[in-house]
Amino acid sequence: MIEIEDIVFRRDGAAVFDGLRLRLDAPRVAIVGRNGSGKSTLLRLIAGLAEPQAGQVRVGGVKVAKDRAGALATVGILFQNPDHQIIFPTVIEEIAFGLEQQGHPRDEARRLAVAALARAGHPDWAERLCHTLSQGQRQMVCLTAILAMEPRWILFDEPFNSLDIPSILRTEARIAALSQKVVTVTHDPARVRDYDRVIWLEQGAVAADGAPGEVLPAYVAAMERLAREAPC
């Protein structure tokens, strides 16, 4: 379970969250909301990449901001832009890095990375240069690196952005096939209509929380109303 307990998080003196409390345990959870509502920040807090000024976040009982080794074994995050995640020149180095951070010796990490690429259906990518891959392929490298570490939860930050329709459909299928529990942030309600739970964030607070059939129509109606009211 992901436990978000009364967190307070401020950036540049402004409150992003002020007492947010959530429990997430459904297999597929979506988070929707306008830009600036706190969606990506919430994922970073869940992954332990940011620490709240008050309150705490636990994933599977692990205090992710305090226990980095425990966090790496429990939760993985796929950033919106794979270029913000990839740090090594070659695919094999990128995938092996997380395994080394988990304590695997370099040779074993490389062997496990090769096996992860084989499971992903891309054994020939090992020595490819990451910058020569397409956006969708680089995203697949990041996901393979996460899966190699075998976390219990995977967080996706706008995984459908900048992808063409075939890549979107492939990404949807990959997420649907995962055995891990998933939290997905997206602006596209159609991509998460089959999820178990949808949380609508508005200015750092929960505007609605429930089944997709209840939350998404209300969210879309509110966004359409804002579009009509906004000056051209």
Rank of each mutant, 00 (worst) to 15 (best):
L43I: 12
E224D: 14
M1N: 08
W125V: 11
P217D: 00
P123F: 14
R21E: 14
P27R: 06
A227T: 09
V183N: 00
M149T: 09
E51S: 14
Q135C: 15
P27Y: 02
A47T: 04
F79H: 10
R152D: 05
F160P: 14
T132Q: 09
E214H: 14
W125D: 09
C232S: 15
P212N: 08
P212L: 06
S40T: 15
R34H: 13
R28F: 05
R225M: 04
L143E: 03
L24E: 01
H131M: 12
Q101L: 10
R193D: 15
E5T: 15
R34C: 04
R119D: 06
I87H: 12
A118V: 02
M140C: 13
T144D: 03
R21T: 15
G13P: 04
Q85T: 13
K39W: 13
A190H: 14
Q203R: 12
H104G: 01
V91Y: 11
L155M: 03
A227G: 03
T144F: 11
D12R: 10
A50T: 00
I168F: 13
A176D: 12
P82A: 13
V62A: 09
P166D: 12
G210M: 01
Q102C: 07
H187M: 10
I7T: 09
A207C: 03
I154E: 00
A15V: 12
A71M: 07
Q80S: 09
K63L: 10
D196Y: 00
G38V: 06
L45Q: 05
W200I: 00
Q80E: 09
V183E: 03
A115Y: 09
R191K: 14
A177T: 12
A73M: 03
A120G: 07
A71E: 04
E5K: 15
I7A: 09
A96K: 08
N161L: 12
H122G: 08
G61C: 11
L216W: 05
L133Y: 15
M140E: 10
S179E: 11
R128D: 08
V62F: 08
L72D: 00
E93N: 06
F9H: 15
L163P: 15
I2N: 01
E150Y: 03
H187V: 03
A120L: 02
L42V: 00
Q85H: 11
L78R: 10
I77M: 08
E51Q: 14
Q203M: 11
R152S: 07
Q101R: 13
R58S: 07
P189T: 10
R58G: 07
A120N: 02
V29R: 01
T184W: 00
Y195K: 02
S37G: 10
P189N: 07
H84F: 13
Q137N: 07
D188I: 14
A208N: 07
I168T: 12
Y219K: 05
D209G: 04
H131Y: 14
A65V: 03
T74N: 06
V215F: 00
F160W: 13
Q139F: 13
P212V: 05
H104E: 13
E5D: 15
Y219T: 11
E3G: 11
R44F: 11
A71W: 08
I31Y: 01
R110L: 05
P52G: 08
W153D: 02
G103I: 02
A207T: 06
F9Q: 10
S134E: 10
R44S: 06
R28P: 01
R119Y: 01
D124A: 13
R11P: 04
